[in-house]
Simulated scan of single mutants.
Amino acid sequence: MHVQHAPELRRDFPELAAGAVVAGGITPDVTVDERAAAFTAIAESRLAVTPESEFPEIQAWRRTFTAMGLKSTQYRCAAESLLRRFRKEGRLPRIHPLIDVCNAMSLAYAVPVAVFDLARIDGYVDVRRATGDETYETFTGSTEHPDAGEVIFADAAGSAHARRWTNRQSGLSAVREATTDVLIVAEGMHDGAATDVERLVTTVADEVAAVWAQTAATAMLTESAPRFDFQNR
């Protein structure tokens, strides 16, 4: 299997910094509350000084959404949505230990972190512009077709595992209790994103090792090395 960004995306968004983590042996029977709290505390301290809309990481994604022809206050990157919810409610809902800790890291870094169940992905993940024929499954089970030209996470079967780039993941490959093998992708657009995303990827791998005692495979996806090939565990 592999994950990569299409060349035209890298041409249009040269500021893109991306990293990926592949891990197996994930189970739901662990506790991550204290570990997640350490990350959410970082976000809390930042939000006490300035709203998430003024974070450079979020402003960069807003510019990216605008460049894609989307209203940045209508469609928000996943990190901004999480930060807004956390600021308003003071907490995030518990979903699955891996999702909970990844969401907490996304809050701390203000960087979108997508987590996919590899058992639900056919062949590969290409981050590319949609043709309009792909199928996206919502969390309620209904289906949609992404707009032609929209940035999606697509697999070999034509399933869109995320719409509007980092805006909304699909229910098809969402992590469940039975999930064991995952692909985690982090992407940033801000100045210094390459350093921040690399740190985030390392932190994700460290959390997988500490909580699940599993060694994750990691890679930075760059213009010179845009594709990460890996084995589905």
Rank of each mutant, 00 (worst) to 15 (best):
T215R: 14
T131Q: 15
E134P: 07
D117F: 03
V30F: 11
G171H: 02
W61A: 13
T73W: 05
G188P: 01
G141S: 08
E89W: 02
D133S: 15
D33L: 13
D181K: 14
T138P: 01
A17L: 07
W165I: 03
Y136D: 05
P97V: 02
R91W: 09
F55I: 09
G188R: 01
W165A: 05
A178H: 10
Q169N: 14
S170F: 00
D206G: 10
A205S: 10
S72A: 09
F55S: 13
Q231T: 10
R87I: 08
S224P: 03
A18C: 06
V204D: 06
W61D: 04
R163S: 00
D29M: 11
R128L: 06
R10M: 12
L221F: 04
S170E: 02
V30L: 04
A219S: 15
I58E: 00
A79K: 00
V32A: 05
E52Q: 10
V21Q: 11
R91C: 12
R129L: 00
A186I: 05
L172M: 09
A110H: 08
R233Y: 12
S45R: 15
D191E: 12
A36V: 08
P7C: 07
R227Y: 12
E80W: 07
D229C: 08
A114C: 10
D155A: 00
R94W: 11
P56T: 09
G171F: 01
D196P: 00
G188W: 02
S142K: 13
S72K: 10
D133K: 14
E134G: 01
E57S: 13
R227G: 06
F39Q: 04
I42V: 13
D155Y: 01
I121L: 14
H145W: 12
P14G: 02
T50M: 10
A162Y: 05
H145Y: 13
Q231F: 09
V201D: 09
R35H: 15
F13P: 02
F139V: 05
W61R: 08
N103G: 04
F13H: 10
I184S: 07
S142C: 09
A186M: 06
A193C: 07
S173K: 01
R168G: 04
Q169F: 00
A160V: 03
E177L: 14
V201Y: 07
A60M: 03
V204A: 11
V21Y: 02
S106Q: 11
A174P: 00
T40Q: 15
T64F: 08
R129P: 01
R129Q: 05
L107G: 01
Q4P: 13
T222G: 01
W61L: 03
A130L: 01
I184F: 08
V22I: 15
R233I: 05
D181P: 01
V32H: 03
F228S: 06
Q231L: 10
